[in-house]
Amino acid sequence: MKNNLSFAMDDGVSLEQREATKEKGASKPLVCPTKLNLNAVKPGYLKSIGTRAARMFGRTFCVCLTFAAAIGVWSAIQSRFAPDLPTPAQTWTRAVEIFSEPFYDDGPNDKGIGWQLLYSLGRVAAGFSLAVAVGIPIGLIVGTSRLIRQSLDPLIQVLRPVSPLAWLPIALLVFKSVNASAIFVIFITSIWPVILNTASGVAAISKDYLNVAAVLRFERLEMARKILLPATLPHILTGMRLSLGIAWMVIVAAEMLTGGIGIGFYIWDEWNNLNVASIIVAMGLIGGVGILLETVMNRIQRRFQYHD
């Protein structure tokens, strides 16, 4: 159990973010004037601003370089091995076309990419909310009771690695609705990090807080609301962030199979029309939205982080 929990806790902080924190630490001595001489403060300060700007510029430059290299590789592969792939230039033209009219609506089977995206986000929101609403209470219970933990753990371990696509036929059979099935698949695959992180948060709760609650004679519900929930909130939010990432990955696969409308279906549809450029544009969009969701969750998490 411990191992699995710690695995779930690995919170997928991106390389870039790690570096950012490292840099913050490193920049400290630069801001501090080394001499007590007041005159020394000004040039030191200006220098630190200068260095920071230079570093920002350097970083942006490196990022641009990475993307340029990737596009270069793509170009090379396209021209040497895979002439069927669209060139970066063709893709760019297609992207301009797509994004110039994202919300057109020509009947149920022909909608702009904006609509597709919104439908997908809607399903993700539904499945993710469900996973959070169900996962947190289960996690709290699993974390509090050793007996329940020991009984549920094997089931969780068996179900957790099951591919989302394996759930789809069962969902279709049970719900007999494409939309509900997609939402269910999101729910069932993104609930595990919420449960595991919540449970590990409860297990890690400080004995001091429990003593405070004991002296105040908190009852079960008060205990959950006033101690358990706020104390484990940072863990819960980590679980939610991981869960949202999974949900956003799973939706594309689910929609490819269920059809109808949504970014996953859009990709499948464009494949059937052999519009590979559109697919690449959609991939870029999916990545961008993924970053956005991650950033939002990160912000929320930082807001509720407490230190002690």
Binding site: D208, Y209, N211, V212, I227, P230, A231, L233, F304, Y306, H307, D308
Partner: peptide
């Protein structure tokens, strides 16, 4: 160790 609740 004071045992204040850090989120309050």
């Amino acid at each position: 160790n004071h045992s204040l609740l850090p989120w309050l």
